[in-house]
Design a protein around this nucleic acid. Structure first.
Length: 1023
RNA sequence: GCUCAAAUGGCGGAAUUGGUAGACGCGCUGGAUUCAAAAUCCAGUUUCUUCGGAAGUGUGGGUUCGAUUCCCACUUUGAGUACCA
């Protein structure tokens, strides 16, 4: 009987689905375990083999946990709101909901084919109104909350209102409100005034903010959606623009987000990335009075100890005080400078960090202690968006201040004892004493900082302060395909729609573009106003601002729906109606035990999720502080592109006529450079070549060109192929062969479809040419090797349609089966590492599965019987149990695949047929290759799924050895091995080794200086 | 610039607390089977070698009886971050 993987896999996938084998229960005695994948965005391109990597790993772990007796929740869903569907809708007019639905179907088909143990009954889709109802609901909770700094948690905004009306805001500090008010004042404010103040406290708020506007995408972007100054999606330029936007006060949680990292099990790299993003710095604010003005300039510094080293101040060009302070004489110069820097884009400023520029305002501040005048400058090295947008410059202790001072000839006082600052600033902290600093003299960094802050506080000119880089997150997108806000406007003030009326469904629009007036696409909706009487969405032409009001036109960003979806899975689909997840479900599942996904979400998704979970905890809706206990980032699977070279331009120069060069042999000139790998690369010759072209622009960089077959005597040489297509007459051919002319050609590397190349790098030319994507090569000629094959070179790069290196998992499943795909993806290398895909290698794991099959079944049917296992059988089984269990728990899936191979090779050699060995072996393999495991398990006479049969117990007694093959080393180098009984003592071992003839040869008459014997391990002789 | 990670055959990679470097697989070489191919099976495959051996885990040093593993310096690659006061 053959291993018919296609039949087996289809059968078992059907069985699992019909029997709901992987349906998780919310009522179970077993311990819970929650394994989650980052849910995919269902793109039109479908899955390639790189996508399922993390899903396979999590599936193995989920299946392992079931064998180990856990009640496992392993759900899957779709992050189905997003830009690509909308872009496609703009181009085609097709509603994004329709394309999304189609894409989801493709994804589901592809996922099902791989045999995941997902509980699909709990599927979520962020674009489903029954789902985004609760995204809107969470938004309302954010709006109804403020962050209480005293208790360090979010609280109901109504508590704040009662505080205001009884005692004012004196005890409720807020960075955005400088003025305090009394309870009387509060009570006298109009409703609008009160709301405007409350908005500054709410965790989501509407504010005019400077945002990252991306004109090409027609929307704003969050900081983490921008990479190197351009949009993450599409790489479009981004500019700064002031807009009224919803923001999320994630900054309120900065400290808790930082502290919480300690409790998460993930790589240090990921923690470090998040720490950087939060960017905590401890220091002080200092305010400098401006001479001749009532104003003072507030700065943030991490080095209050260096305050006596201040020799000037620098303001960001955008700083609000610049225009007020600048003196008449300096006005013109300052204005020119501001204009100049405004023109420089953010990107230019980032790229060009070396040029020092700035200008003196003419104004002076007063040093808080010495009362000496301090020049006030502006300079674009100071960023308006960080700290207070102003710095106290200490040139002796900060390299940028130092460079600035040198450049503009400002004095550089030295306040460090025994440090030479003639060449550069001293940026160290430790082991140096402060000097020339009045009351700080002789103190170290720590002491001086403390003292400086104390004295500043006495003066009322500063205090200790912690600053965070983490900015509030802009939450509005000028887009259609996202969650609508549950918000309408009364007198310009945002009002929440009552939760009971949710969801507010996306309205229909006839086009998915912004309106002519520049409003977001929702501005096109005809039915998009809120009636407070009926509590329904009604037509906009009825707006009367009495009972019918305009609704918010922005939608929420992509990260809204993904910031809480892990809770939604906890609730069984049937009972999701009235809650985002019930208390019972939340109590039972708590949070995600294992979360696997891409590292690209390290700052965005993970921070936002953690933020929302903390809010939900503070407000009593969930009882966990962090959403994920353990996090693993899977590495990307890269594609292996197939490279051929394409001859684009050929010309023949008649030497005898043009030059007087003497060539004693036939000669080609080629314009190329080459790399060192020396791999064989062939050349396609395009028939559309331009004969006698003078285009010399094409140059190439490709491997192995030196191996090309130039030899005119070989039938398939480049020379002969070119001549044949150019139809060069005999006379020219003679000239070329006699060295009278030079044939020059230009070569470009081109990618050919990797799926048409076999394991030996041979291209299947005929099937390649008839491919849709390869039509342009229909007319090309291929320079063949002498054995008439066409070889390609290889290049490892990201898997992408563009590079023709995409491998579809469906094709692999049909050809080799899902079990082969699963095993191979794991076998490629460590989960977290980047590694190239090479379809050729899959034959290894595929033949392993065939060998496994043959261990159980042959032409006569089942081979397995009740034979007593041999000692060797037991040893193989138990060392496999031990290793596989350790590997899974360490997420070292690649090594357990080799362990399986070794086990099967050994058992085959041992001719093992014992059920006592072969049945537990199936359980070990089943997380990795579930279909074949189920099939064989069934053949062994079991009529239930293997998925919950217990994981075999490891018994160490089977591994006990009676002898050990000792490696005998000389000076640490192993020279030979010697089989000795395990119970030999040190002395006995030493005696046996010293008596050995090879020892005598090795020592060659020398007396050993020392003999090290580690019983059971090694013998080392030092000579 | 700063932070972090990595570097092992032709390739992917293994070596779990310092103890036989190159497991397992791909590819390659030879052989068996076959009319032939596919499939399968067997043997070999780090390099050099005078066939006794010797060298060898990016480079240079150190600790140790013994280092791919620990320490120091450097080189290269990748990732993150960027005038953060």
């Amino acid at each position: 009987m053959q291993y018919d993987f296609n039949r087996i896999e289809k059968d078992w996938q059907k069985y699992w689905s019909e029997n709901q084998t992987f349906k998780a229960s919310n009522n179970c005695e077993k311990p819970k375990y929650y394994v989650l994948d980052m849910f995919p965005y269902p793109s039109g391109a479908g899955l390639h083999v790189g996508h399922p990597l993390g899903y396979i790993a999590s599936d193995i772990y989920a299946r392992y946990k079931r064998h180990k007796g856990s009640n496992v929740l392993h759900p899957q869903g779709y992050d189905s709101f997003g830009l690509p569907a909308e872009q496609y809708a703009i181009q085609t007019g097709q509603h994004p909901a329709i394309t999304t639905e189609t894409n989801i179907k493709t994804y589901r088909r592809q996922l099902d084919q791989i045999g995941f143990s997902f509980d699909w009954s709990r599927e979520v889709r962020t674009s489903n109104p029954e789902y985004y109802k609760w995204t809107q609901w969470i938004f309302i909770q954010l709006f109804q909350s403020y962050y209480c700094n005293n208790d360090n948690k979010a609280k109901d905004i109504n508590e704040l209102v009662s505080i205001f009306s009884s005692e004012g805001n004196a005890n409720v500090a807020c960075d955005d409100i400088i003025e305090t008010f009394t309870s009387e004042a509060w009570n006298s404010f109009s409703t609008e005034e009160q709301q405007a103040i409350l908005l500054k406290y709410r965790l989501t708020y509407l504010a005019e903010t400077e945002v990252n506007w991306c004109p090409a995408l027609g929307t704003v972007l969050a900081n983490d959606e921008i990479v190197n100054g351009v949009s993450e999606r599409g790489g479009h330029p981004v500019m700064r623009k002031k807009m009224t936007q919803w923001s999320m006060r994630i900054s309120a949680y900065a400290e808790r987000l930082l502290q919480g990292l300690e409790t998460i099990d993930c790589t240090d790299a990921l923690k470090e990335t998040q720490r950087n993003w939060i960017g905590k710095s401890v220091g002080a604010t200092v305010s400098f009075n401006v001479k001749g003005h009532d104003e003072s300039i507030e700065v943030f510094t991490t080095r209050p100890d260096t305050i006596f080293g201040v020799s000037f101040m620098t303001l960001a060009p955008e700083h609000e005080l610049v225009s007020k302070l600048t003196t008449a004489e300096q006005k013109a110069e300052v204005e020119t400078y501001i204009e100049k820097t405004a023109k420089r884009s953010e990107r230019d400023r980032m790229v060009d960090v070396k040029t020092i520029s700035g200008v003196f305002t003419g104004a002076y501040a007063e040093h808080p202690f010495t009362k000496e005048p301090v020049q006030i400058w502006i300079g674009d090295y100071v960023l308006a968006s960080y700290g207070t947008g102003a710095v106290m410059a200490v040139p002796c202790g900060d390299q940028r201040d130092y460079d600035f001072a040198k450049h503009f000839n400002i004095q550089i006082p030295n306040i460090f004892e025994g440090v030479d600052i003639s060449k550069e600033a001293f940026t160290g902290k430790d082991n140096v004493k402060i000097a020339n600093s009045d009351f700080l003299n002789g103190m170290n960094y720590k002491k001086a900082s403390k003292r400086a802050i104390y004295d500043l506080e006495q003066l009322g000119q500063g205090e200790g302060k912690t600053n965070y880089r983490l900015r509030d997150a802009v939450f509005s997108r000028q887009r259609y395909w996202g969650e609508p806000f549950p918000v309408y406007y009364v007198n310009g003030m945002p009002q929440m729609i009552d939760a009971e009326h949710l969801p507010i469904r996306l309205p229909e629009v006839e086009k998915y573009l912004p309106t002519e007036e520049g409003e977001p696409p929702l501005g096109r909706a005809n039915v998009w106003a809120w009636c407070t009487k009926t509590n329904t969405v009604v037509a906009n032409n009825k707006i009367d601002n009495k009972t019918i009001f305009s609704l918010e036109l922005n939608t929420m960003p992509g990260w809204a729906g993904s910031s809480w979806y892990f809770f939604r899975y906890m609730e069984e689909a049937a009972s999701r109606g009235n809650v985002f997840a019930s208390k019972d479900a939340l109590n039972y599942w708590e949070n995600v035990d294992l979360y696997i996904g891409g590292a690209e979400h390290a700052t965005g998704h993970l921070l936002y999720s953690r933020f929302w979970v903390k809010l939900l905890k503070d407000r009593g809706f969930v009882n966990v502080e962090e959403p994920f206990k353990k996090l693993i980032n899977q590495g990307m699977i890269l594609g292996t592109s197939a490279i051929a070279l394409n001859v684009t331009n050929i010309r023949v120069n008649h030497l005898s006529k043009l030059y007087s060069l003497k060539e004693d042999e036939f000669k080609f000139t080629t314009d190329y450079s080459q790399n060192s790998s020396g791999q064989k690369v062939n050349i396609l010759v395009s028939k559309d070549l331009m004969f006698e072209s003078t285009n010399t622009k094409n140059t190439i960089s490709c491997s192995g060109i030196n191996n090309l077959n130039h030899d005119p005597s070989k039938k398939n040489s480049l020379f002969n192929t070119i001549l044949s297509i150019l139809d060069i007459n005999e006379e020219v051919k003679d000239e070329l062969l006699n060295g009278e002319s030079i044939l020059s050609y230009f070569i470009n590397p081109i990618r050919v479809d990797v799926n048409k190349v076999n394991a030996s790098d041979e291209l299947d030319i005929d099937s390649f040419k008839i491919q849709k994507t390869s039509k342009e090569y229909e007319k090309s000629l291929f320079i063949l090797e002498d054995n008439d094959i066409f070889l390609v070179g290889r290049e490892v790069e990201k898997m992408s349609k563009r590079w023709l290196n995409v491998v579809n998992p469906e094709v692999i499943c049909e050809q080799y089966g899902a079990d082969s795909l699963r095993l191979y993806e794991m076998f490629l290398g460590p989960l977290e590492q980047y590694k190239p895909w090479d379809t050729a290698g899959i034959s290894g794991v595929h033949s392993f599965l065939k060998k496994l099959w043959k261990l159980y079944v042959d032409d006569n049917g089942l081979k397995v019987n009740d034979a007593e296992p041999t000692k060797d059988n037991l040893k193989t089984l138990h060392k496999t149990i031990k290793k596989v269990q350790e590997d899974i728990e360490n997420f070292s899936f690649n090594t357990s695949v080799s362990t399986f191979m070794i086990a099967v090779n050994e058992l085959t050699a041992q001719k093992c047929t014992s059920k006592e060995i072969l049945e537990p072996l199936l359980v070990l393999i089943s997380p990795y290759a579930p279909h074949i495991a189920e099939e064989l398990y069934n053949k062994l006479g079991n009529n239930t799924s293997i998925s919950t049969s217990p994981f075999p117990e490891f018994d160490a007694s089977h591994l006990v050895e009676s002898s050990k093959n000792y490696p005998i080393s000389f000076n640490g180098k192993m020279r030979f091995t010697l089989e000795l009984p395990m119970d030999f003592t040190k002395d006995e071992i030493e005696k046996a080794v010293m008596a050995h003839e090879k020892t005598i040869t090795q020592l060659d008459g020398r007396e050993p200086k020392k003999i090290i014997v580690v019983p059971g391990k090694i013998v080392n002789i030092v000579g």
